[in-house]
Computed example of a mutant assay.
Amino acid sequence: MMKNKTLLISATALMAVAPLAALTSTTQAASTDADTAITKTIMHTSIGYDKNGKSTGNKYYAYRTVNVMTTPVKINGDFYYRIYGSNQYIKATNIDGVTRKITHNTYIYRSSNGRTSYNGRWKLYAGQTVTTYGGSYKFRNGKHYFRVGGPQKQYIKSYNLGPVISVNTNVNTNSSSSQETNSEETTVTVTDKRAALCVEVPDKDAVQPSGKYAKQGDKFTVDRLEKGTRADTGSDGDDDGELAIYHIKGTNYWIYSHSVKAAKEIPTVTYNKTKKSLIQFTKPTDIYNADGTKIDFKGDQVRKQGGSYRVDKLLYIWVPSEKKAELFYHLVSNSVYSNHGEVTFSDGYVKASDVQFDPDSTALTPSNTAAEAQAAAVKK
């Protein structure tokens, strides 16, 4: 575990080793009228729309700049920017993007089978947030990906991302900021004379000293506070009291919490839980097959459990006996404690409404819709 080391680098040196930020839709005032129009970068190829939300057929390509009116307009529930000097509108999400939470550790891709980096990192972790732009793309492998940067190709599999947690478009006309502040970010100030900067150990759940250090008074934006295995505080994060590690945004570096003072608190995540999705059985529960029928345990039933069980899928399944689709979790385990000992099965599902999901573990996103589950059942 890293405490105090004896090497010093300046904040300038740290910035030199940190990667350049990816292209974003940062705005600049248009020279014609700063209160009327601003210049933005289109991050996702966009269709032009009229004031009623009807397509005009015009196309605006990614990574080109465009002058738009400062105040976004809401059309049919979505926000649009009107192009300066015309009656064409572009969806704001294709410019400002939206914030999503990463639900599974993920690589960044430039193609179906080619990986790339994003802000100097080749891998992003569950619990972090990322900005995505526009709708998803379907690659040649049949999977869907969201764009997270540019102009180089940078995509994340949609499967590894949760639903939108915030829209980055600033709808407050009294503010000049184009994006909302991420509530899970804060600024930390180094309080130690020398604070070690750590990096992840490849293919291991750990960090190690990088040989670089920050000095007292240096400030960094951090986007994750973590306990657990990687922070060397035990698998459950309970060891070593309040010790944790911060991830320095836009870099590969981590810094221990005892070496800094944070401007505000951000949620602490436990590394062990961010790698898993967990549920608890809080009452007697039935287990189902993939076709929506109950597994017959000859009258036995899963009982209330003291521990947690891993799940790896969240999906709708048509339940024939109820004539409706229900949301189910897929169990990783093939056995569960029951009222009379233990029951085993080859492939088990439990209703989401019958169990309690651990909010500190990795959230799952439904892989289908209720309508799709019903349609699949009708085809059989």
Rank of each mutant, 00 (worst) to 15 (best):
S333V: 06
N334C: 11
S176V: 10
P202M: 01
G162F: 00
E200R: 09
P366L: 06
K123R: 12
S158A: 14
S86A: 04
A214L: 01
G150P: 04
D300Y: 04
N141R: 13
K249Y: 08
E342W: 15
K153H: 10
E372I: 02
T103R: 03
K276Q: 03
V269A: 13
K215P: 13
I317A: 03
V222F: 00
A18M: 11
G307N: 05
P72N: 01
T71G: 09
A373E: 06
M15V: 13
S136Y: 14
D291R: 05
I317L: 07
P151R: 07
A30D: 08
S46A: 01
Y61D: 05
V302C: 09
Y80D: 01
Y80L: 00
V201E: 08
A371I: 05
D223L: 02
V190R: 00
K380Y: 12
G97H: 00
G250S: 07
T293I: 08
K3A: 06
N119H: 03
F345R: 03
E184T: 07
A22N: 15
D347H: 12
G48V: 01
H104W: 06
Y213T: 05
T187W: 02
I108E: 03
I83Q: 04
N168Y: 14
A325Q: 05
N174Y: 09
K351M: 15
G134D: 01
K261I: 11
A37P: 09
K74M: 07
Y107Q: 10
I295T: 02
T71A: 09
Y309A: 04
Q305D: 09
L8D: 13
D33F: 10
G211F: 15
D312A: 06
D358Q: 02
A34K: 10
T41R: 10
I9D: 10
V66Q: 05
M2H: 14
R310A: 13
N368G: 02
A37M: 04
T169M: 07
R64V: 09
S210D: 14
T106P: 07
Y337D: 07
Q152P: 03
S86I: 04
T131E: 01
G211A: 11
K3H: 15
Y137E: 13
G120R: 03
P151S: 09
A377H: 04
V260Q: 06
Y61T: 09
T285S: 03
S46T: 01
T116G: 01
N94V: 09
S235G: 15
H330P: 04
A371M: 08
H104Y: 06
S112L: 07
I279S: 01
S178A: 08
N170S: 15
D96C: 11
A214C: 05
G97F: 02
Q28K: 12
A262F: 00
